[in-house]
Nucleic acid binder design. Structure first.
Ligand code: FES
Ligand code: FES
Lengths: 141, 141
DNA sequence: ACTATACTTGACCAATTTAGTCAGGTATGT
DNA sequence: ACATACCTGACTAAATTGGTCAAGTATAGT
């Protein structure tokens, strides 16, 4: 049960972006240097974030990325969804009536994992990028 | 962010065990058949559960496994700990003061992941095997 | 027009982890 | 003795992860 780098980096990068995009677009190169994430990898991540309209890109010299919404409108759910960091606790297909063992009924633990999934998702739905920014400036005092 | 089979199977198997161990020890073979889990794999799992004293083994003909505590005393945390299904959301070593990027300070998302970890663990600490049993008999009505 | 910057796309790969299998044991009730 | 069932460790195929590499395209500034 762990997070992948993709999800982790996506959030990191967006926090960085949120802090600096007021003045100018932020280049991936800058984020790469500040956060210590491979540039090539960041490109993959941002292409996904762009597809889900979490960021906008500005090409050319002095170009870069900008948030397309306000920090309080970007929830962790949105970010994770964009980069395919999905929470999958059940083994079976939820829609199907079959269980994970191939039997006709759901297995004895199915409900448990489903509850867990909800529990985790609740967390992600509550947290916004803004929360993280606050948290971070607080630390700096 | 997903669960491994080890954790999943461990819980499955223990629910099965809890339901049937009142009368006789339950053999892994039976669990294997009822839950559709490979016998060899179950053996690996139970050796770990035994090491953490969640189950007791009884050898010989008509032998098998029995819970060593009452279902309400066995929390999911205990099970997961036994089979090394650990929740790891932060990247860095928690004790260290260094961040995940190797820098001197914790990264901007560290606190977030730490909160998440707590959030998930709370769930596991609350749920006991007994809760699962109830849940399952309710479904059968 | 040229050039540097920075986004864009897709293929590729090495390392790790997972989810098991296989092949032998050893203990014990009947 | 012998069948049952626990016990142990080595091994492996497949999937996933966490990237790298290569070859673009668009745009701002000179
Ligand atoms: S997890 Fe859904 S049936 Fe087992
Ligand atoms: S996760 Fe702990 S420092 Fe980044």
């Amino acid at each position: 049960m762990k997070l992948t780098s993709k999800g982790r980096y996506a959030v990191m990068a967006l926090v960085d972006l949120a802090r600096f995009d007021n003045i100018n677009p932020v280049s991936l190169r800058d984020i790469s240097l500040r956060q210590g994430i491979s540039l090539d990898y960041l490109e993959q991540i941002f292409s996904k974030l762009k597809k889900d309209q979490i960021v906008k890109s500005i090409r050319g010299t002095q170009g870069g990325y900008v948030l397309s919404k306000k920090p309080n409108e970007i929830k962790l759910t949105n970010i994770f969804h964009a980069v395919d960091e999905k929470v999958k606790t059940v083994q079976c297909k939820k829609e199907s009536k079959k269980g994970c063992n191939g039997k006709a009924t759901k297995c004895v633990t199915h409900n448990l994992w489903d509850e867990l999934e909800t529990h985790i998702n609740t967390f992600f739905e509550k947290k916004s990028l803004e929360d993280l920014l606050k948290n971070n400036t607080e630390q700096r005092t």
